[in-house]
Design a binder for these strands. Structure first.
Length: 426
RNA sequence: GGAAGAGUGGCAGAGCUGGUUGAAUGCACCGGUCUUGAAAACCGGCGUGCGUUAACGCGUACCGGGGGUUCGAAUCCCUCCUCUUCCGCCA
């Protein structure tokens, strides 16, 4: 969420950013609504504070008058106070209304995009930041999509998942399950070697938590909701892990805060359909290793680059052809200022699969989280937060299976063999 | 699930028979004196949000969350949450 003060002081910047996000002039009027609502909020508060000051000073006097036995004068003041109180009640209501309305408006404003975010309407306009260097032609013998390979080698059973839960809940079996576990262990080992602290968080979170990272209220329909206890199943480890720093004042020397965690992720994916959702391409439950950083504002873009190159390195180690996209204004998420997507090429499907999305949220999340630090002048400032996946494993799995198939079976990438303890699925 | 107790500033810990208590005291932290330096000692400072101001400052709100009683609440009442201990149940 943006701060009103920021919008007030950087109006041009906000407009520029919203235009990159393809906002129409009509929609831009939201900015003025925000500012005028904030004005009336301030007015109410100034008036209210004055009344409250009157009540406070009279109350003090009343106490003193009673002590010195002047009950009559005290009673006089009491009636004055009750009159003031009526007015103050009105103003309080007014102010609270303004605050609620302001909040509602602010929730509609997306993050400011970074100057390097290209204009564009959607996916097709994303900038290829780092193209893929490998040959992407379909090689001889790479014919089967992962759902066919799954059946052939009996390592993944979507139908079984559909029976016991519903469609989009994969069941991994045998070497498939083991490969999945190998990926988790390998990635966690690599990432923790880079100084990330490993976290195993709760998989269900409360409302406050979901709100702080922005899943509520905007994405309520995307989360599974356990209504009996009012808990939400996490759509990503980003939610519980980032919330570890909700309402925390970070010490300068604690930067950068680097955390990682493996969790299953649960997404309702309401409204998805078609070829996109086949096999592991889009599922309701998938495993993911997430990386999160909370940094000093001056360092966050440097950090973003480091995160992207670390994640790229992991794809290289897994011997997967990939490219990096810089998301355009039409595709960058509501909360992000700058996002790089890493896509892996599935040779059998002949299509790109997004396996990681690395973003800098600047202060957009930390504002809601109230995650701050004291700068060198002793001033409270919001920290920057970033996160990325390393990786969404369902799709990495899909690509490994497809790209490494041959008549002999599916070859396991070298770095994973110590974890799988087999080198081929056949 | 049942019973009892507790939740106060970075931490520890008073206040809780309602009225200079935004909150004692100690520790930690920052600045200074002293010292060759450090430690100790001494002096001073040390919460956050919002409003207002050119600024110093002033006002206001906050003692787990929400609501209530009262002229006035950290202090009384209601409710929710969390923690501790005891009992029950259980992987």
């Amino acid at each position: 969420m943006l701060r009103t003060q920021f919008i007030r002081e950087n109006r041009e910047e906000v407009v520029r950013s919203l235009k990159i996000r393809n906002w129409t002039d009509d929609q831009l009027s939201l900015i003025d609504q925000v500012l005028s609502t904030d004005d009336s909020r301030k007015q109410s508060q100034t008036a209210l504070d004055e009344l409250l000051a009157g009540i406070n000073s009279r109350s003090k006097q009343i106490g003193e008058l009673y002590k010195s036995g002047k009950a009559e004068e005290a009673n006089q003041l009491k009636t004055e106070v009750s009159e003031i109180k009526e007015k103050s009640q009105q103003l309080t209501d007014q102010m609270n209304q303004a605050i609620a309305h302001l909040e509602e408006l602010l929730l509609q404003l997306p993050n400011i995009v970074h100057p390097t975010v290209p204009a564009g309407k959607g996916e097709e306009d994303n900038e290829v930041y780092k193209p893929c260097e490998s040959n992407l032609d379909k090689p001889e013998g790479v014919d089967l999509a992962h759902w066919d390979l799954a059946e052939k080698y009996d390592i993944l059973d979507m139908a079984a998942g559909a029976k016991i839960a519903g469609s989009g809940f994969p069941v991994f079996k045998g070497k498939g399950a083991r490969l999945q576990r190998a990926l988790i262990s390998y990635l966690l080992d690599q990432v923790t070697d880079q100084g990330y602290l490993e976290i195993i968080p709760p998989l269900l979170v409360n409302e406050d938590t979901a709100r702080a990272t922005g899943q509520l209220p905007d994405k309520e329909g995307q989360m599974y909701h356990a209504t009996a206890d009012n808990l939400y199943l996490i759509p990503t480890a980003e939610v519980p892990i980032t919330n570890l720093y909700r309402d925390v004042i970070v010490k300068d020397e604690d930067f950068p805060i680097k955390m990682t965690g493996y969790t299953p992720c649960f997404r309702r994916e309401a409204g998805s359909y078609g070829a996109d959702v086949k096999g592991l391409n889009r599922v309701h439950q998938f495993d993911k290793v997430e990386i999160v950083q909370i940094t000093h504002p001056d360092k966050s873009y440097d950090t973003l680059n480091k995160m992207v190159s670390m994640v790229s390195g992991l794809l290289e180690n897994l011997e997967l052809p990939y490219r990096i996209l810089r998301l355009c204004g039409g595709d960058v998420s509501f909360t992000s200022a700058l996002t790089f997507d890493l896509e892996v090429f599935s040779l059998a499907q002949q299509r790109w699969l997004e396996v990681s999305s690395v973003s800098n949220f600047e202060t957009f999340q930390t504002n809601r989280l109230k995650c701050r630090f004291k700068d060198e002048n002793g001033k409270m400032r919001l920290a920057h937060s970033l996160n990325g996946s390393a990786f969404g494993l369902a799709r990495v799995m899909a690509a490994i299976l497809e790209n490494n198939q041959s008549s002999d079976g599916i070859r396991i990438p070298k770095v994973l063999i110590p974890y799988t303890r087999f080198d081929i699925i056949n």
